[in-house]
Structures are given as structure tokens and as C-alpha cells.
């Protein structure tokens, strides 16, 4: 049963990161965090969140045991899916500068 929970960790981490970055962006663009909208502070926060998330994904991958069998494969696959999803879907935080 534990392996099933572990398999969900990577995608869950992505979902949390997505909500956090998207939420931070929504608040910045709505002017909640400051008058300058998507200013330097907000962008640094988002990039920081993203990088911290990627690190967490990496740590998860390192922590998961290697080995044969689906019960080992699925948690690692889940962790890779999460890492890939976070890297691809949130990379705009380094490129896009306007709301």
C-alpha cells in the first residue's frame, strides 16, 4: 500500500507547486502583493518557489529506492512525472515578464 502512496508524491508535489506559483502570480497581478503587479519582488518569489520545488522533486527522486518490480518502478515514475511536469509547466516564470 505504501508504494501506492509514494507513487502519488511526485504528481502531488507538482500540483502543490502549481497552485502555489499560480496563486502567487494571481495575487501579484491582482495587485494584492504590491502596487507594481508582476514586479521584481513577485517574480523573484515565483522563481524561488519554482526552484525550491524542483529541488524538492530532486530530493524525492534521490530518496526513493531503486529496484525491479512495479512497486519500485511506479514511485520513481511518479517522481519523474512530477519533476518533468514542474519543470515544463512552470518554466514561464523565468521568461514572462508581464501580467
Amino acid at each position: 500500500m505504501r508504494w501506492l502512496g509514494l507513487s502519488l508524491l511526485g504528481p502531488l508535489l507538482w500540483a502543490l507547486l502549481f497552485v502555489a506559483v499560480y496563486g502567487a502570480h494571481g495575487m501579484a497581478c491582482a495587485g494584492v502583493t504590491g502596487p507594481e503587479g508582476l514586479g521584481t519582488g513577485a517574480r523573484l518569489t515565483m522563481v524561488g518557489l519554482w526552484l525550491a520545488g524542483l529541488l524538492a522533486h530532486g530530493a524525492l527522486l534521490l530518496a526513493l529506492p531503486h529496484g525491479a518490480g512495479l512497486q519500485r518502478f511506479l514511485p520513481r515514475a511518479g517522481a519523474w512525472i512530477g519533476l518533468g511536469a514542474s519543470a515544463v509547466t512552470l518554466f514561464p516564470v523565468v521568461l514572462v515578464t508581464s501580467c
Binding site: 502549481f18 499560480y22 502570480h25 494571481g26 508582476l38 509547466t89 514561464p92 508581464s98 501580467c99
Partner: peptide, 14 residues
């Protein structure tokens, strides 16, 4: 917002 467009576009391709 542009940034949201970029997030969801990337996710949709992924």
C-alpha cells in the same frame, strides 16, 4: 494574464 497563458499552454502540450 500572459503568465497564466504560458503555464496552461505548456501543460497542454505536455
Amino acid at each position: 494574464p500572459h503568465m497564466a497563458l504560458a503555464f496552461f499552454s505548456a501543460a497542454s502540450v505536455l
